[in-house]
Design a protein around this nucleic acid. Structure first.
Lengths: 118, 118
DNA sequence: TCACTGGATAGAAGGATGTCAAATTAGAGG
DNA sequence: CCTCTAATTTGACATCCTTCTATCCAGTGA
C-alpha cells in the first residue's frame, strides 16, 4: 500500500527562468503539478502540511470534504505517488505527512534570477 | 484575443504549510496548477521565461515541439488565462513574456515555516 | 476465531482535456 | 484590392480524471 514512485525525485534544482528543461524532466514535473491541479488535493496537502506535529490521520481528512472515503483515499494516493506526502500505518490508523524536500524543490522552481526588476 | 482572466490574482501569500486555505481559493489555485500540469506548457513557460530579453515570439515556440500551431496556441492561451504569461502583438508577430509576480507567488506558496528541521 | 472498524482497491459513469484539420482574423506588401 | 503569412478560433475525437458504489485488506478486541 505504501508504494512510492516519487516522480519528483529527478526534478531538482534549476528554476523555470533558468536553463532549458529537457522534455523528460518536463514530463516528470508535469506529473507533480498534475497532483496539485485539484482543489481537493490542494486542500488535503494544505491540511497535512499545516497540522501541528506535521502528521495528519486520514480519519481527520475525510470530515472537511463532502466526499466519500474512497475518493479521499484516491487523492491521497495521487499526492503520495507524486512524492509530495508519505503515509505510515500505526495500528488501526494511517498518518500522512508532507515531504519538505518536495515543497522546497517546487519553491526553488519558481525562483527568479533577478528579483531586482520586479 | 488578449483577454486575461488571471485566476491567480486572489491567490496570494500564505504558504501551503500555513493557515487553512479556503475552498474557493483552493479552486483558483488549482486552475493555475492545472495550467502547469502539462509537459508542453511547462516547456513553453520555461522557454519564455528563459529567453534573453524576457520575450519570446510565438514563431520561435512552435519549432521545439512536434505539435501543430493551433495546439501551441491553445497551450499559450491556457498559460495566459492562468495569469502566468502575457502576450502582445507587434506587427505580424505575437510576443509572450512570463509574469514575474505569478512565479514569485507560487514560489512563496511552497515556502516552509521552519526549515531548521530539515 | 469472529466480528468490527479504518482504509485501500476495483470497476463504471460522466465530465474535462490534448490534439488535429479546417476555417478565421490580423497585419504586411505588392 | 488581393495575396501571403502569423496566429487564433472552431469543432471533433480519443483519452484521461474525478467520483461513486461495491468489495477487499489490515488491525483490534471480545
Amino acid at each position: 500500500m505504501m508504494e512510492i514512485e516519487d516522480v519528483s525525485a529527478p526534478v531538482c534544482c534549476a528554476p523555470l527562468s533558468g536553463p532549458l528543461l529537457p522534455a523528460d524532466e518536463a514530463a516528470d514535473l508535469a506529473k507533480v503539478f498534475k497532483a496539485l491541479a485539484d482543489p481537493v488535493r490542494l486542500r488535503l496537502l494544505n491540511l497535512i502540511a499545516s497540522v501541528e506535529g506535521g502528521e495528519a490521520c486520514v480519519c481527520d481528512l475525510t470530515g472537511p470534504f463532502d466526499l466519500t472515503a474512497p475518493t479521499i483515499s484516491h487523492h491521497l494516493k495521487v499526492l503520495r505517488q507524486a512524492g509530495l506526502i508519505e503515509g505510515e500505518r500505526r495500528g488501526t490508523w494511517v498518518y500522512y505527512r508532507a515531504i519538505p524536500e518536495a515543497l522546497t524543490r517546487l519553491s526553488g522552481l519558481f525562483a527568479l534570477p533577478t528579483p531586482a526588476g520586479l
